[in-house]
Design a protein around this nucleic acid. Sequence first.
RNA 1: GGAUGGGUGGCCGAGCGGUUUAAGGCACCGGUCUUGAAAACCGGCGUAGUCGAAAGGCUACCGUGGGUUCAAAUCCCACCCCAUCCGCCA
Length: 428
Amino acid sequence: MLDRKFIVSHAEAVKENCLRRGATCDIDRLVRLEAERAERLQAAQELNRLANEVSQSIGKATDDADRQSRIAKGRELREQKEAAQKAHDELDAEITDLIRHLPNMTHPDAPLGGEDDAVEVAVGKTAVRKFDFKPKDHLELGQLHDLFDFEAGARVAGAGFYFLKNAAVRLDLALQHFAVTFLSDRGFTPVTTPDLALTEILHGTGFMPRGPETQIYSIENTELNLVATAEITLGGMMAGQTLDSAEMPLRLCGLSHCFRTEAGAAGRASKGLYRVHQFTKVEMFAFTTPEQSDAVHEEMRSLECELFDTLGVPYRVIDTAAGDLGGPAYRKYDLEAWMPGRGDSGQWGEVTSTSNCTDYQARRLNIRSKSAGQKGTQFVHTLNGTAIATGRAMIAVLENYQNADGSITVPEVLRPLMGTDLLVPRAS
RNA sequence: GGAUGGGUGGCCGAGCGGUUUAAGGCACCGGUCUUGAAAACCGGCGUAGUCGAAAGGCUACCGUGGGUUCAAAUCCCACCCCAUCCGCCA
C-alpha cells in the first residue's frame, strides 16, 4: 500500500506509475476524496474536543439545573461528533479501498514494458549443455525412474496434485536441506512456517484471497487460507511489531508448502511438475531499513545465482519489466533455468524470483523500525526471494543431468544428501 | 474441550464511572554534586493522526470488537491470547 500523503503530494508520479504498470485508478478523484476526508477529520476532532470540555465541566456543576443543561449540551455535541466521524469513516473506507489496488512505485532502473520486455542481466556459470542424444523431459525420466504419480494425485486431490516417489522424495528433501544449510551459513535464520495464514495477513502481503481470479485456496467458514508462498507467513511474522534498526537487516529463510489454484493458467505450458497446485519451497525474506533494501535485493539475487551455480544448473537472470511486476514489487529479478525437455528443444523456465517490496507490505502489516536515541519510527522495507522451489528445481536437475542411457547423475553438492552419485533407471 | 485466574506504557505495578494530566517504582536519557564513578537530588522519558512558520496545542490508543453513558482503563456483551490444573493427542 502506498502512503496517502505521498499519493497526494506526488499525484502525477503515481498516475504515471499506474500507467506504466497497467493499473487503472482515478488518482485525481482519490486526491479530492482525501482532501475532503481531512476536513471531516478536523471537524470531528474539534467537536470531540468541545464535547470533552463539556463533559469535564459536569463534575463542577453548581446545582442540578446547571448540571442538566450541561448534560444536554454534551449530548448534542456528541451527536454532532458522531455524524462527522461517520462521514469521515465512510470516506476513509472508500479511500483505503482505492489505495489498496494501487501498485507499488517502480525502481527507476526497471525496464519499461510488459512480459516480453524483461532484460537479461546475467547468465549462470554453468553452460547450456549440448546433448549428443535427444534429451528426455522430466516426465519421461520420471517414468524410467518411477518418480511421480500424477494419476494418483488426481484421484486424491484432483488435477495438479501428485505424489513424489522413490528418488524424487530424496531429491526433494536433498534440495530443501541444501538450501536451508546454504542460507543458514550466510546469516539467514531458518524457520518453518505455518502453511495457513489469516486473510488479514494475506492482504498485508498484497495477496487477494476470495476474488474471482484468486490464486489462493481458502478454508471455508474461517479466516484461514493456504499460503501461496512462505513470503506471506514470513512477512506476517512481524505484523504490528516495531523492530530495532540496529538489528537490521533481519534475514530469515522459511520452509513451507505452497498452494496455488492457478486459476486462469489452463492451457499455458504446464506439463508435469512445472505448474502444480502444491509444492515445497525454501524462501528468503528480509526486513531492512529503507537505506538497506536495494543492497539486500542484490544480495538475494546473487545468493540465488550461487545456489544454482552450485547445483550446476544453467540459468539466466532477468530484470522484470514494470508492466509485469506484481502489485507489491518495486523491482523483481527472476532466475530462469534451462530446461532441456521443455518445449520442442528446451526452454528457459522460471525457477526463482526475488522482489524488493520497499515499504508496500510493511505499511499494510504495520511493521516499523526504531533507532535508539531517535524519535519516532519508520516503516521497514521487506524483500523476498526464492532459494529453491523444489518442484521446478527438480525439473532442472533431472533434465540437465540426464545421460544417454536414461540414468541421471546426481549434482555433486547433493550426493552426500542423496547417498548416491547416480540414479539408475528401474529395470523394465 | 472443561475449570480457575489473568491481559494497564520498555518492564513491574496501582487505579475499578468525572479531582487521572494513567499513581508509584525499575530501566533509560540529560543535569547538579564529584578527581572519576556510585549514591543522592532535579528534570525528561510512548505511538499514531491532526493544526501550526515555530513554540506549542488538540484527537485517539489500558488484549480485540461492539454496547451503555454527557463522560469508560473502570459497567455490560462477544471474541482472542496467556498461565495453572484436568481431559485428549503426534
